[in-house]
Computed example of a mutant assay.
Amino acid sequence: MIQTEYLPKIDKEYLEKIDNDFLLKALKPYSSKKAVYLQEASVLSSRQLGSDSNYIVQGKFSIESPCYVDETGHFNAVEFVMCYNQIGAVSLAYATQNKLLLCLQDLTVEEFYILYMSGIYITRLESTYKSLINPQEFSCKFEVIKERKRSRLSILKTLVEFSDPQGGIISGKVDLAIKHS
């Protein structure tokens, strides 16, 4: 398993698969454009989610054909953002439903879905392309490293790492603002 300076190794025995129906519901905004790239996701078990632990979700992706351009042959910046949005949507919806993040505790998952397309903003995005990724088969680790809530606004600092079986790796830091209604 590939390691980076950003994300910890995840032992597969501690992963709990997110239900496929839940995944499809969270990714519904992408389905009409045939842009659902996230194939499955698993959350780090609550056994490891303690007060000092970060919230981590792992996903498997495949981009058979990009929805916005002819085949490029590699994972690019547009796909980085689209895949980040998909793992983020599933991760945060799951965290909301299961009350795993303090800053989202007052939301229901139905309220989260309403906020998802109009109330979540990327406020900072930094990506580092260490080596090319094959978009046909790759995985991702998504981690919330810091969260805070101010009145009707939640702020999340996240890390993400995309990697493929051939050793391709791209990592990033992404900050989010979630505007509560």
Results as ranks from 00 to 15, higher is better:
Met1Pro: 05
Met1Lys: 08
Met1Phe: 10
Gln3Glu: 15
Gln3Tyr: 12
Thr4Trp: 08
Glu5Val: 07
Glu5Gln: 13
Tyr6His: 13
Tyr6Glu: 15
Leu7Tyr: 08
Leu7Lys: 01
Pro8Asn: 08
Lys9Leu: 14
Lys9Trp: 14
Ile10Phe: 01
Asp11Leu: 08
Lys12Asn: 08
Lys12Arg: 09
Lys12Ile: 10
Glu13Ser: 12
Tyr14Thr: 12
Leu15His: 05
Leu15Cys: 12
Glu16Ile: 12
Glu16Cys: 11
Lys17Tyr: 05
Lys17Ala: 09
Lys17Glu: 14
Ile18Leu: 12
Ile18Asp: 05
Asp19Ile: 03
Asp19His: 05
Asp19Glu: 15
Asn20Gly: 00
Asp21Cys: 00
Leu23Ile: 03
Leu23Tyr: 07
Leu24Pro: 02
Lys25Trp: 01
Lys25Asn: 08
Lys25Thr: 12
Ala26Gln: 12
Ala26Tyr: 08
Leu27Tyr: 04
Leu27His: 10
Lys28Gln: 15
Tyr30Val: 06
Ser31Met: 08
Ser32Pro: 07
Lys33Met: 11
Lys33Glu: 12
Lys34Leu: 13
Lys34Arg: 15
Lys34Phe: 11
Ala35Thr: 04
Ala35Gly: 12
Val36Ser: 01
Val36Thr: 09
Val36Glu: 10
Tyr37Thr: 04
Gln39Trp: 07
Ser42Met: 03
Val43Met: 04
Leu44Gln: 15
Ser46Tyr: 10
Arg47Glu: 14
Leu49Asn: 11
Leu49Lys: 15
Ser51Asp: 13
Ser51His: 11
Ser51Gln: 13
Asp52Pro: 01
Ser53Phe: 14
Ser53His: 15
Ser53Ala: 15
Ser53Asn: 14
Asn54Gln: 14
Ile56Val: 15
Gln58Asn: 08
Gln58Met: 12
Gly59Ser: 00
Gly59Pro: 10
Lys60Ser: 13
Lys60His: 15
Phe61Asp: 06
Ser62Pro: 14
Ser62Val: 04
Ile63Lys: 01
Glu64Lys: 06
Ser65Asn: 14
Ser65Arg: 13
Pro66Asn: 05
Pro66Glu: 05
Pro66Gly: 09
Cys67Lys: 01
Cys67Trp: 07
Val69Leu: 06
Asp70Ile: 02
Glu71Cys: 07
Glu71Tyr: 12
Thr72Ser: 13
Gly73Ala: 09
His74Met: 02
His74Ile: 02
His74Gln: 04
Phe75Leu: 11
Phe75His: 06
Phe75Gln: 03
Asn76Ile: 09
Ala77Ile: 09
Val78Pro: 00
Glu79Tyr: 02
Glu79Val: 02
Glu79Leu: 00
Phe80Gly: 00
Val81Pro: 02
Met82Cys: 07
Met82His: 08
Met82Asp: 04
Asn85Val: 01
Ile87Phe: 09
Gly88Tyr: 02
Gly88Asn: 09
Val90Glu: 03
Val90Pro: 02
Ser91Cys: 06
Ser91Phe: 03
Leu92Asp: 06
Ala93Ser: 11
Ala93Pro: 03
Ala93His: 01
Ala93Val: 00
Ala95Ser: 12
Ala95Cys: 03
Thr96Ala: 02
Thr96Gly: 04
Gln97Phe: 02
Gln97Gly: 00
Lys99Leu: 04
Lys99Tyr: 07
Leu100Tyr: 06
Leu100Asn: 04
Leu100Asp: 10
Leu101Arg: 05
Leu101Glu: 03
Leu101Asp: 03
Leu102Trp: 03
Leu102Met: 10
Leu102Phe: 12
